[in-house]
Every structure is written in structure tokens, then in C-alpha cells.
Design a binder for these strands. Sequence first.
DNA 1: ACTATTTTGCAAATTTGTCGCAATTTGTTA
DNA 2: TAACAAATTGCGACAAATTTGCAAAATAGT
Lengths: 139, 139
Amino acid sequence: MHSSSSLVQILKKNKLSLTKPRESVFKFLATNQKPLTIKEIALGIQNVDRASVYRTVELFENLGIIKKVHVGFKYKVELSDIFQPHHHHIYCTQCGQTFAFEEPEFFEKYIERLGQKFEVEIKDHSFELEGICKSCKNN
Amino acid sequence: MHSSSSLVQILKKNKLSLTKPRESVFKFLATNQKPLTIKEIALGIQNVDRASVYRTVELFENLGIIKKVHVGFKYKVELSDIFQPHHHHIYCTQCGQTFAFEEPEFFEKYIERLGQKFEVEIKDHSFELEGICKSCKNN
DNA sequence: ACTATTTTGCAAATTTGTCGCAATTTGTTA
DNA sequence: TAACAAATTGCGACAAATTTGCAAAATAGT
């Protein structure tokens, strides 16, 4: 989490424009602080076409600004580790609630070893759990 | 991995028919031994309608015959732990190749602890890595 | 403010996934 | 193995999600 990075800087560094749609999508993600679907983003911000949301999300992903989280069947997006501490999620398949937890150190080391073993330069990883949360079990 | 289980037995146990589409989908997954998209399955087998592939995949998932794996962007399906040893994948974002690796023991324990901590009854988990494989780096 | 370039909105096309229903296939029993 | 009841399929129509081309608008740098 490099607090020195900002949307503006990343865009500038890549010779890209800071536009209203890009800012809107970014702010919406930053405000909500949790994985969101494209639909939720598109509905949550005004005056931005759905197509632009898709384009922005793809761009942001390539720039490493956001990352995709797979919950259940669909994917959602949230700000990447540059803007939020690295974490993973537990997803309740019943109510859709997500619980975030940070990653223990031994994880990184283990991942590093895996990369070496298979000779793959690991760029990213996901670790998602799903189950039934307490309140859903007591419904 | 219960080698005693077979498609036939599972279907029978659940009072379901062994149909050509179901057999085709199952065989295709068993032959390929790696996560496949619905599209790949639908294109890979003949005389089975797209809708039936979807229905079969959903059924198989409910029966625990297959499970969904999220690689990169989309999800794919592969035979579940009943038919294959429990494992995870490293996915090359360049060429799409997937490398499978088995799960270490400490994982289970760690997952169990997480479930307790958040009071969620964990039903499933995914752990996927992605990066650039050796041959893609040397292209 | 002017201009070259990038990006957007819009509308159309494509892709993906779902659904109802008549026709076919399956499992069973005689 | 013929025949019936139930389960399942294919088909076509939808609905939702995602992509694309392109003219118009916004942006970054003079």
C-alpha cells in the first residue's frame, strides 16, 4: 500500500487523461471500500455510460488500480493493494455479505516458493472462502 | 478422493438418469483434466445443446461432481475432489496455461481457524495464482 | 483559447445465460 | 422387449451482460 500513489499520478505516468468517468469510478470504489459489481458501479455513479464503466474497469485493472474478486459465480472489483491493505474475503453464499481478513506472512513465502517451483513469475493471487455466516444459519 | 464414486453411482443414488448429455460432459471433463469454460465444453462435445450444458454443469455442481474454478477473468469448471485430488492452480495470463498443485496441510487448519474467527461455516475455498510462465517470458 | 489527441456516449452487435414447452429419452415393470 | 410414467432434452425466444464502431465531446499542452 503505497500512499504515495494516486489516481492522478498513475494516469499521468501512463500518459492517460484524468476524465470524469475515471474519477467517478475511482471515487465510488474508494468510498464503498468493498467489492462491487459492474452493475453496482454503473448504477451508483451518474452520467457515465455503462460501456465507459466497462472500459474504465478494464483500464484500471491493467494499470493495477483495481483487481477482480470472484465471489460465488460472478466477479466484483475493488481497489487494489496500492490503495487498500492486502486482504482476502469470506463470502456468505446466502446473504452475499463479505468479511475481509488480512493475509498472514507465511502465505507470501509459500506463494513465492510455488512460483519458483513452477517457474512462473507470480503477479497476483486470490484466496477466497465461502460458506454460511452466523446470522444466516440462525434465520 | 473416493475412487468408489462414479458418475453412474452418484446419479443413481440421487434418482437421476444417466443421459447422453450428462455422460458427454462428464467424459469431456475427465479426458481434459483441467478447468474448462462452458463454451469449451459446448464446443468440444457434439449433439448437446448449450442449454443442456448449462443445466448439466449446474446439476453436477449441486451433486458435487464438479466445481468452479476462477482463472483470470471467467470461471471454468473441472471435476471435483471426488474424482481428482484436491488442488489449486497457477494460471499464465499470457498463454492461458494452467499448472496444478496440491494443497499443503497447513491450509486446511488455517481455513478452519478463519471460519471460527468470523463464525462462518466454510463450505469451500479457492486459491488461485496467476503470472507469467517461463516459456512466455522467453518468447 | 487553439489544436491534436484521447476518451466518451450512443446505438448496434455479440455473447452469455435462462426459460417454457413439446418431443424424446430413460428407468421400470409387466 | 413392449409399454408407460417420469425425467430430460433441444429448440426457440428472451433477457442480461459485454463489446465495438464511430461521430461528438472532453482533455492536455501549447
